[in-house]
Design a protein around this nucleic acid. Structure first.
Length: 557
RNA sequence: GUCCCAGUAGCUCAGCAGGAUAGAGCAACAGCCUUCUAAGCUGUAGGCCGCAGGUUCGAAUCCUGCCUGGGACGCCA
């Protein structure tokens, strides 16, 4: 789709390159890539380039002289440049003609919901696996951050022109599920008044207590005297089912949906695990030692080799996980991205080794590490632990501060910095709380437009965009034009927090404009029409940004 | 001991495929509501960008070393 700003930039870049060639400062093959930046200072124009400094060595001239030559040979009319200035060590600052954003508002209003979408990703397929919490307890804060990150990241990827699949890997096989069965058994017996010991490393969450009670209510003594194997098998199924339902419900309430729920057990059922081991063996990366079967991951830069099959004949956690990644790669994605908690980062190098040993390039595989979340309340750090059962669960958070604020807070920061979640702030219905700032901007515009209708202003129809020359208006227009690039950059850098920042900045410009200029002015019908159109464009863009974040855009507050 | 992440304003954080005078929110201080929602706006103050070297026209950004905080280094998952 068209993108006014990037079109303008492309033209500018072309004309700069043309001027360089015309001034014979460099040959076509030695021409560096023209880099345009948006100066922070308005006095430095709308765009600036450092091309003169880059050419200093090639042209063997002082940067400022080079800049002179470039501006002398520059065709300003083609690129709607109003004036150029040479500044500092040799920057060329471009001041654009006032109307260079003229077509932007109609572009945004025509695009509507899809404004911001680009084909940047060119349809490459990306699979993102995230959350993937063991079905043995509630989602806690760290998981919630990963869920918010993964979800918004996927939204952003999609908007930037990638094919995206969201997947959840269910650890429904192996040790931890057996432990789940034992824990459920204990709680069941306790619910019936028997004395039962919780296994040392059992799950002590309230969720298991409640499963035990439900079982006791539903089945009474039925399972007390049945064969233990049979009983545990049933509890395992039963517990898994309930835990999974809980997870799905929590995630759905958190507005996170998955395209695919992938079962670890299915890997065993379909012999995928033995297959994966065999593939590694065929590649010559497997050996036996000390009664165990090893993967020579050091061939691919891992610290040490890893055990695939233990002395007791069981697989390690790694082995089915390799099979899982093999399966994902066989499904043909251009890239697979995992979102993991920080405690798993040591796991990356061995998995990357496995990817390569399976015959795939390492670049297809990427891991985003989500750093720890610390919860603060009343200035005190709130400890959380799934084991002890007094964890702060995502569910608590959603009830306490709402989904919008929770999501906003989690994607407000870069994923690789530790995050202090200020519960008091997120909970407060005050102007301290940044989520309201953005939503308020949206609501404000909605109210204004409603007012416009009530007072009989023309809300639809043509307008003259050239009238929008006030500083606050051009600031808004420029920001609006950046949105598609911001989304693309956010996808490219795997940094959804850039969208949060964008939406905040846009809201800030809107509030500032609102206080400086009156939109509905009966003495100025033409300007009013233009400003109404501007407001609609801002509303659309904020709404689109909030949609990417999975946050509601209220009409009224 | 090895590896990963972080260290930027009082606090929480942006900025980091090198660029001009390092930004924002909160907190502080001073102002703005008979006018489209004050959940808002305007202004002031606040900084050896952890430390020390190096690379270069130019470093918060890249490289090396060190310091501090967090995490990871199982035939656990």
């Amino acid at each position: 789709m068209s993108n006014i700003l990037s079109q303008t930039e492309d033209t500018l870049k072309q004309e700069i390159a043309a001027a360089v060639l015309k001034a014979e400062l460099a040959g076509e093959d030695e021409l560096p890539e023209v880099i345009l930046e948006k100066p922070k200072e308005k006095a430095h124009g709308d765009f600036a380039t450092n091309i003169a400094m880059q050419l200093a060595r090639i042209a063997k001239k002082a940067p400022r002289h080079i800049a002179d030559d470039i501006t002398a040979n520059f065709d300003a009319s083609k690129a709607s440049v109003d004036k150029m200035e040479i500044a500092g060590p040799g920057f060329i600052n471009f001041f654009m003609k006032n109307d260079f954003l003229g077509g932007l508002i109609p572009t945004i209003l025509d695009a509507g919901d899809v404004y911001g979408r680009t084909d940047f990703g060119k349809g490459q397929s990306v699979q993102v696996e995230f959350v993937s919490v063991n079905p043995t307890g509630d989602l806690h804060l760290g998981h919630a951050r990963g869920a918010a990150y993964g979800d918004v990241f996927c939204n952003v990827l999609k908007a930037a022109g990638y094919e995206v699949q969201r997947e959840y890997y269910i650890n429904d096989a192996g040790n931890q599920i057996d432990k789940l069965a034992l824990s459920v058994e204990t709680r069941y017996l306790e619910a019936l008044g028997y004395e039962a010991d919780m296994p040392e490393d059992g799950y002590r969450g309230d969720d298991i207590v409640s499963i035990g009670k439900t079982l006791a209510d539903e089945y009474g003594e039925k399972w007390v005297n049945t064969d233990r194997q049979e009983r545990l098998a049933f509890f395992k199924e039963y517990g898994l089912h309930i835990e999974l339902d809980n997870l799905k419900k929590d995630l759905a309430d958190f507005r996170v949906q998955f395209d695919n729920w992938f079962s670890e057990q299915s890997l065993y059922d379909n012999d995928k695990v033995t297959e994966a081991v065999q593939t590694l063996r065929d590649g010559g990366y497997v050996y036996e030692s000390d009664g165990a079967t090893w993967f020579r991951s050091t061939d691919f830069g891992d610290d040490k080799d890893r055990v695939l099959i233990k002395q007791d004949g069981h697989y390690t956690y790694l082995t089915p996980d390799i099979a899982y990644h093999k399966d994902k790669l066989e499904r043909g994605f251009d890239q697979i991205i995992n979102v993991w908690g920080s405690d798993h980062h040591g796991y990356i190098s061995r998995m990357r080794a496995a990817i390569q040993a399976l015959g795939y390039p390492a670049e297809k595989f990427d891991v985003k590490i989500i750093q720890t979340v610390n919860l603060f309340e009343g200035g005190e750090k709130v400890r959380m632990s799934k084991r002890t059962g007094n964890a702060v669960a995502l569910r608590d958070l959603m009830e306490e501060v709402g989904v919008d604020a929770t999501r906003y807070f989690f994607v407000m920061r870069s994923n690789d910095t530790q995050f202090d979640f200020n519960l008091d702030l997120a909970r407060s219905q005050s102007n301290d709380n940044p989520i309201y700032y953005v939503q308020y901007a949206h609501a404000r515009i909605c109210t204004m437009l409603k007012q416009a209708e009530t007072k009989g202003f023309a809300v639809e129809g043509t307008f003259n965009g050239d009238l929008l020359t006030a500083e606050k208006e051009t600031d808004l227009l420029k920001k609006l034009g950046e949105f598609p690039q911001t989304v693309a950059e956010s996808a490219e850098k795997h940094a959804p927090h850039k969208v949060t920042q964008y939406v905040f900045d846009l809201a800030s410009l809107l509030h500032s404009f609102y206080n400086a200029e009156k939109v509905l002015d009966s003495d100025n019908p033409e300007l009013t029409k233009a400003r109404i159109a501007l407001m609609k464009a801002v509303r659309t863009t904020i709404a689109n940004g909030l949609r990417l974040l999975g946050i509601s855009a209220p009409v009224k507050m």
